[in-house]
């Protein structure tokens, strides 16, 4: 079990009287692609938001590489929280690119801020180092890596464009590059194609499939069943805040054991 990258233990989350997550436990191996399916309101998105610290779970624990990054009820300092956040990346349904920045700047913003901070701390500790000079090379590196990532998602021509000049599919590909720029251990996708026109979903799904080949650990929440089946190493079906069914794509899609999963899959097959 040394290659277990993520362990989630009995995660619970309630909003008022509504318990959205009712004890979620699963683990993930390095390089594994986990697809989470389920109808709206089953808690998929809340689960991703808890993993990315946009929501705070009421109970449970999250471990990355065997280290606890979250334990319900335990206070974290802002610094600890940030370290924990950086283990995860999230691609949103609605892209959420920063409209005032170019494609390139969207991708470089977060890494350049973080690297600058780290460099400043390092240079404070060691006065013989030249912060300004090192910063210049560091920023050039960040830029080079960002350009590389933008080319990987097929938008080398659009570096200097602003988000409003891009199609939804292109924006989502930039959002993927932006998330990758922070080199998260686990990259999460929250229905990455749900806000896209059908003819634009293909390009985004192709990029995600490409990431699978580069051995990234990913959690994908999606309604695209064909895609889920193709990309997943493992599938989780969620209903009413619990994991109703879990297994390989063949097991879950081919021969679902639970009644709910069978009904869900039957209805989504009808839709296409």
């Amino acid at each position: 079990m040394t290659d277990t990258i993520l362990e989630v233990k009995s995660l619970r989350k309630r909003f008022g009287n509504n318990e959205v997550l009712r004890g979620i436990t699963f683990s993930l191996r390095r390089g594994e692609v986990l697809v989470i399916i389920g109808s709206s309101g089953s808690g998929k998105t809340t689960l991703l938001r808890c993993l990315n610290f946009l929501e705070t779970a009421d109970e449970g624990e999250i471990l990355v590489n065997g280290d606890s990054v979250f334990r319900a009820g335990e206070k974290m300092t802002a610094r600890q929280l940030r370290e924990s956040i950086l283990h995860f990346g999230l691609v949103f349904q609605s892209f959420n690119l920063f409209p005032q920045y170019s494609v390139l700047r969207n991708v470089t913003l977060a890494p350049s801020l973080l690297e600058t901070e780290r460099l400043r701390d390092a240079c404070r500790a060691d006065p013989s180092r030249d912060f300004k000079a090192e910063r210049r090379t560091m920023l050039a590196d960040v830029n080079r890596r960002a350009e590389e990532l933008i080319r990987t998602v097929g938008l080398g021509e659009k570096m200097k464009n602003y988000p409003f000049q891009l199609s939804g599919g292109q924006q989502q590909r930039v959002a993927i590059a932006r998330a990758l720029a922070m080199s998260p251990d686990i990259l999460c996708f929250d229905e990455p194609t749900s806000a896209l026109d059908p003819e634009l979903t293909g390009e985004v799904l192709r990029v995600i499939r490409g990431l699978k080949n580069s051995d990234r650990t990913m959690i994908v929440v999606t309604h695209e069943m064909e895609f889920a089946r193709g990309v997943a190493d493992r599938v989780i079906y969620m209903a009413d805040g619990v994991i109703e069914e879990e297994g390989t794509p063949e097991e879950v899609f081919g021969a679902p054991k639970s009644e709910k999963a069978r009904a869900f899959l039957a209805s989504s097959n009808l839709k296409g």
């Binding site: 995860f88 949103f92 977060a110 932006r178």
Partner: peptide
């Protein structure tokens, strides 16, 4: 400003003041 802007910045590890001044 849409909530998603702050959320995206937070997930990328920006601090609260960075989120305000940069985003």
């Amino acid at each position: 400003v849409p909530v998603g802007q702050r959320e995206a910045a937070q997930v990328l590890g920006l601090t609260r003041s960075q989120i305000f001044f940069r985003v």
